[in-house]
């Protein structure tokens, strides 16, 4: 398999991860922060950017860990623990680096970075990457695409919720209730992309 073919399939995987198999709206991973941090567009963009960055980096790290360490040693069943450790360590490391070199960014990100550690979409992306046996370059595309798809969904949701702020939502549905209904309707729209691009 030559390199240009490889990049082509990475691009397909990337777009498939954004639209066809949007990690938030088709597999419903990462719902907790999606529900709680989608009240304002600005914070949603902040968290979304952080997720794109962390997801891209950790899927690459986890790919290396899995194929270069776990598989040769034949201890693939440790992947859950290892992936979580890698993600937590990476987020902690990034937090320390940002705090040291860019305090304003550190304070603007605030709670988001620690929140990402417990975002199941990050772990989900790493596990999908293993199940679908992506090559290294495809993994880069997949990590970035999944993050971008997650960001797209949370930013759209934040826009909707900002517009809804002045509406009279029925009392029992305020907050998470209406957010889940909107998420359902959004997922209904994303069903339309079924079959457009196949992420294996």
């Amino acid at each position: 398999m030559n390199l240009s073919h490889e990049f082509g399939s990475a691009l397909v995987v990337c777009f498939a991860a954004i639209f066809t198999g949007n990690i938030l709206l088709t597999t419903f991973l990462g719902m907790c922060s999606f529900l709680s941090v989608s009240r304002e567009v600005k914070t949603a963009v902040g968290l979304g950017t952080a997720v794109v960055f962390v997801m891209t980096c950790t899927t690459i790290l986890n790919w290396a860990m899995y194929w270069l360490v776990l598989v040769p040693l034949q201890i693939e069943f440790y992947r859950f623990i290892l992936f979580i450790i890698v993600i937590a360590a990476f987020v902690q490391f990034i937090e320390m680096v940002i705090e040291r070199y860019s305090p304003p960014l550190y304070y603007s990100l605030g709670i988001f970075l620690p929140l990402i550690t417990v975002n199941c979409a990050i772990l989900g992306a790493a596990l999908f990457m293993v199940i679908r046996k992506y090559t290294f370059i495809e993994t880069i595309g997949y990590g970035f695409g999944s993050g971008a798809g997650w960001m797209l969904a949370i930013v759209a949701m934040a826009g909707i919720r900002q517009k809804l702020a002045v509406n009279r939502i029925p009392q029992g549905l305020q907050g998470p209730g209406i957010t889940l209904i909107i998420a359902g309707l959004m997922a209904l729209g994303f069903i339309g992309f079924t079959g457009v691009l196949q992420a294996q």
């Binding site: 930013v155 759209a156 934040a158 826009g159 909707i160 994303f190 339309g192």
Partner: peptide
Amino acid sequence: LLANMFAPIID
């Protein structure tokens, strides 16, 4: 439906 969901963020 997809365009509807992005309409608020476009605005």
